[in-house]
Amino acid sequence: MKNSSRKRCTVSNLLVLARFLKMIDSLNKLMLVCTISLLPISTHLRAEQQFTDVVESVTKSTVAIALDAPFKHASPRVLGTGFIVDDGSYAITNYHVVSETLDPKYVENYVVLSGEGTVVKKVKAEIIKIDIKHDLALLKLDSILTPITLSSKNMLRPGTDIAFTGFPIGAILGIYPATHRGYVSAITPDAIPAMNSQQLNLKMMQRLDSVSLIYQLDAIAYPGNSGSPMYDPKSGEVIGVINKVLVKDTKESALSSPTGISYAIPVKYVHTLISDVKR
């Protein structure tokens, strides 16, 4: 009897142990599934946190390009966007942003505005090199500001994610940089399309003889974004300069009816402009 009881007890204990081990195994599997299911969320949160850090860093190097004419305007008139490069004493923007001839009758200067809101630093800027073909201008600053890193890569492939930071509506409410995201939709010639031959002028025909490849973007940019740094959302390295916006009617209607198609000049032309000055 005693041996029989011991056997029954042993079998019972083994069954309890087996159930316990099975329960532990089920819990381990459940925890593994929960962990795996949470991984994409965790990865996404880290990526978003990284992007906000990149935007914060890029914003420090992004400036508003303005015309300072005290006799004409109470405050500097914002013309577009630019960004600080090299050792911090230079800025890049589009040539058309600073193509306005300064009036010798008045005290007029191009300046860059660095900061946010109404508390900004005004730094005098002088145009020292231009690249009309690629619509770029290099400005020499009177003070040192925080530079941004330029990418060493050549042309990026269509489908590459991009971001750009600038001043799409100028300084209506103060200097408040805005950031937009998108991707490279195509590598395209920089020739401006025309509906028929009657719309072609001499300048456009000359451009057709020597076209450059630029980025076409699936991203909404506005006239004030001209000169904005286009950068890698992961590293913050500049890969291009926002250039021209394709709008449905006129520049004035861009804010109300943007097409969503924008263009950017590859950063290799920025490298060339800086190298020419440094020689």
Rank of each mutant, 00 (worst) to 15 (best):
N13T: 12
I162A: 05
S275F: 15
V54N: 04
A47I: 14
P70K: 00
S26V: 15
H44D: 11
P223G: 04
G227R: 08
G170C: 09
Y263T: 01
T101L: 07
V78M: 08
L15A: 09
V270Y: 08
H44G: 03
K203P: 00
S151G: 07
N28Y: 11
G82V: 08
G227F: 06
L145T: 05
S152Y: 05
Y215P: 04
G236Q: 03
P233A: 08
E56A: 07
I274R: 10
T118P: 00
Q49D: 09
N109I: 03
Y215T: 04
L113N: 01
R8K: 15
D25Y: 08
L39K: 06
M230F: 07
L67H: 02
P70L: 04
I148Y: 04
D86C: 03
I41G: 01
L173N: 12
K234Q: 13
R207D: 01
S257K: 13
S256H: 03
V270T: 14
S185E: 14
F20D: 12
V211D: 06
L255K: 00
I41P: 01
R46M: 11
A264Q: 03
L45C: 10
V54A: 06
V78Q: 07
D103Q: 02
L136K: 07
R8F: 10
I84M: 02
I144E: 12
L30A: 13
R8D: 11
K248M: 08
T250I: 03
D232I: 12
S75K: 12
P193I: 13
L136S: 04
L14S: 13
R6D: 10
T10P: 04
P258W: 00
L45P: 00
A64H: 00
P258I: 00
I242S: 02
L208I: 14
T62M: 10
V238L: 09
I128D: 11
D161L: 11
G260L: 06
I162F: 04
L217V: 11
I169N: 10
D135R: 05
P193C: 02
F71C: 15
V277W: 05
G240N: 03
V247T: 15
E56M: 02
M204T: 03
I265K: 04
F164V: 06
A18I: 10
S61A: 15
V112L: 09
S235D: 07
L208H: 02
P193A: 13
E48T: 09
S4R: 13
Y90W: 14
G224V: 08
L45Y: 09
S4T: 12
L139E: 01
Q199H: 11
Q199C: 10
I169F: 12
K140F: 02
P168R: 08
I192L: 12
G240T: 15
R77P: 05
I274H: 12
